[in-house]
């Protein structure tokens, strides 16, 4: 019987959780006040800088603004994710 309720919950999350998640995401961007084109420019520069030294796949590089959970309202970071290429094992 409890499984039945659990399943239903997973399939259809309560709308307040949806609201909270959507808000948290949208507020990260609102608070950062960094426009998307600036983020894109930063992304391109990072690709350029790293490509000078090692081989990376430009399409895999992502740059985002992230909030620090539990920290104050204005505590945020720019996070760049730069995966190394498969053959990057040689980099080790």
């Amino acid at each position: 019987m409890f499984n039945f309720f659990k399943k239903k919950k997973e399939a259809d999350p309560k709308s307040k959780h949806v609201a909270k998640e959507r808000l948290q995401l949208v507020l990260i961007h609102d608070r950062a006040s960094i426009p998307p084109n600036v983020i894109e420019a930063i992304r391109k520069d990072i690709i350029l800088a790293i490509s000078k030294h090692i081989d990376i796949e430009p399409g895999d590089v992502s740059v985002s603004i992230e909030a620090h959970p539990g920290a104050s309202r204005n505590s945020r970071s720019i996070v760049a994710d730069v995966p190394l290429r498969k053959k990057g094992e040689a980099v080790r």
């Binding site: 309560k14 709308s15 307040k16 609201a19 909270k20 808000l23 948290q24 507020l27 104050s72 309202r73």
Partner: peptide
């Protein structure tokens, strides 16, 4: 019923 954000949710978001 989980269909509206509660006091804690709003306070947590707005800090």
């Amino acid at each position: 019923k989980g269909e509206m954000m509660g006091i804690d949710d709003v306070v947590e978001i707005l800090a």
